Amino acid sequence: MLWGQKGDDTMNIETVTQASTAIETSAVQLNAMNPEKLANFYQVNMGMTLLEQRDDAFVLGTATGRVLLELYQADSYKEANKAGLYHFALLLPSRADLGAILRYLLERGVELTGASDHGYSEALYLDDPEGNGIEIYADKDRSVWDIQDNGLIAGVVEPMDAEGVLASAQDAFADLPEGTVMGHIHLHVGDLAQTLAFYHEILGLGLKYVMGQQALFMATGASHHHLGANLWNGVDIKAGAEGSQGLRASIWQANAEDFARIKARLDEEGYAYQEEPKQIALVDPAGTRLLIQVA
């Protein structure tokens, strides 16, 4: 089992499912070949608001000011079969909100790549014009989640009840609703055991579900996952060239206590990072960059 590969008898399943921080996903940075065109896509088709346009980036999010996405100029095209983004996932406040955006996407003729019931959530999938994967989902009531005694939260992949979701819509979709957050990020990685060890021991996430030997899901708090990781691009892959098209960095928010704890763990392990006021920048074992910021 993944959690037993370190040879540490204390790293049993009950231990590794427990989170030691309250860190959460906050936003995603993407490198784009045409950031302006991509920013327009997210405004027109996803209901995002352009919050700021800088010389180096387009910053998008909700109309209430929550930053969800930052778009930067890419230096080169995406390389195949590399570590990086599988999808980022926008968590909507309710099923009614999911129904409203589903109807909107269908009316606009936006192509969906999937629509699934995961047991704990209902989710839509699509790609943006530069091939970045997007999930849009709403959680089901926690009372129906398959939460096991050892702390794991079992998920399924079944067809979504699209008619039921559409029928739940109450208002026409205009913008991402207040309360929309970056629910999780799902990554292509090259080694699940290394990914588990890094995000559990350094960032403090707990393991929530293992999909065979192909994928795992981790979270803090009451979430089913803030991080997904899979081997679907291959084993032992690393991130593409710095500045290449695709994921630039995932952004995580931590309270001051957890920020200090993560920094201390990095120092203990001799793990390289760059520190700025209220921010740590580092790369995970697959070479994917992440930023940890004080909320």
Rank of each mutant, 00 (worst) to 15 (best):
G99M: 07
L227N: 06
G240W: 00
D139L: 01
F173I: 01
S168T: 05
Q245V: 02
L90Q: 00
I237E: 06
G287V: 07
N132T: 10
N12T: 12
T49F: 03
A123R: 03
K208D: 00
H87T: 10
G61M: 09
A254G: 03
W3R: 05
S94T: 15
A295H: 11
K78E: 11
V16G: 01
Y137W: 01
A167Q: 12
H226K: 11
E107D: 15
L2D: 01
V110F: 00
V210R: 12
E70H: 13
A74P: 13
R265K: 13
Q194A: 15
A74D: 08
S116G: 10
Y271S: 11
I202C: 07
E24N: 12
M48R: 11
D171N: 15
D128N: 02
E275N: 12
S20L: 00
H184E: 04
E163H: 03
E122M: 04
L124Y: 04
F198T: 02
G99C: 01
D191V: 05
M160D: 02
D284W: 05
Q29A: 14
V181A: 12
G119W: 04
M182D: 05
A286L: 05
D139C: 00
H118S: 09
G151L: 07
N255R: 10
K78Q: 13
S116R: 06
P285L: 05
P93F: 03
G240F: 05
Q279P: 06
M1A: 15
A239P: 05
V44T: 15
G151A: 04
I13G: 05
G206E: 04
Q214T: 09
G119L: 01
I147R: 09
L30P: 10
I292F: 05
G179H: 09
E201D: 15
T220Q: 10
V59S: 04
G287T: 03
D55Q: 14
A222W: 01
V210Q: 15
Q214K: 14
